[in-house]
């Protein structure tokens, strides 16, 4: 474990808490159309379920197991909230990204490019590829609606920063322990790359108090 990865995991936690806070607030100000993509949240739940299949078999540390359990539980809870509890504030007409394409693409690639052709390894590889593109329905929704509530932008900032810091962690680990993992490196670079234009708008507008609006 290194500082970069620890902060990255904490940013990941923060993003989930921001989302839960926003959904709690939306509930209290019911009627405001939620700008959160259900598809992205469902993809994240799939990512965690397919990545942590070794939750009970491979104990690394209390931290590792606790975080895995939290990520699985929170992502399923969010999907539950969006699907059942807050169904009214979801508008499927805005969530039109073809998620089956990214699921199919990640599955196909995981079957071809992986470290071992075993169920667990292919599922893990699938979760890495899927996580890289899971944010697309959410970003697609932002381009459709053209604007986002400030709390949604903070959610995306935390989420984008988490994987960006993992890239720094991988550079550090390559430098200190010659750690090489092409699958996560390339997927992580793609994942962070998808946030670049969002980060640009976030730093130039939202942090200056302006509304998040796409040009």
């Amino acid at each position: 474990m290194n500082l970069f990865r620890l902060v990255a995991d904490l940013m990941h936690l923060v993003s989930i808490f921001i989302l839960l806070l926003k959904m709690q607030k939306t509930r209290s100000v019911a009627g405001r159309c939620s700008r959160i993509s259900f598809k992205t949240q469902a993809l994240y739940a799939t990512v965690f379920l397919t990545r942590y299949t070794d939750l009970f078999a491979n104990f690394q540390s209390l931290y590792n197991t606790t975080m895995k359990v939290f990520f699985i539980a929170s992502s399923l809870y969010i999907v539950f909230l969006m699907k059942f509890k807050f169904k009214a504030t979801n508008d499927p007409r805005l969530d039109t990204f073809k998620a089956q394409y990214v699921v199919g693409g990640a599955a196909a690639l995981a079957l071809i490019v992986n470290y071992a052709f075993t169920v667990q390894e292919v599922l893990w590889t699938f979760s890495i590829y899927l996580e890289a593109v899971a944010i697309l329905p959410q970003l697609f929704m932002l381009t459709k609606t053209g604007e986002a509530e400030v709390i949604t932008t903070h959610y995306l900032f935390a989420l984008g920063t988490y994987r960006g810091l993992y890239l720094v962690n991988w550079i550090y680990r390559y430098w200190t322990e010659y750690y090489v993992d092409w699958i996560v490196w390339i997927a992580g670079a793609v994942q962070t790359g998808l946030y670049c234009d969002f980060f640009y708008i976030y730093f130039t507008k939202v942090l200056k108090g302006a509304k998040f609006e796409l040009p």
């Binding site: 995991d9 470290y115 750690y179 993992d181 996560v184």
Partner: peptide, 10 residues
């Protein structure tokens, strides 16, 4: 692909 994943990363 040659290589192995890190078992301790989330």
């Amino acid at each position: 692909l040659a290589g192995a994943r890190s078992k301790d990363e989330l």
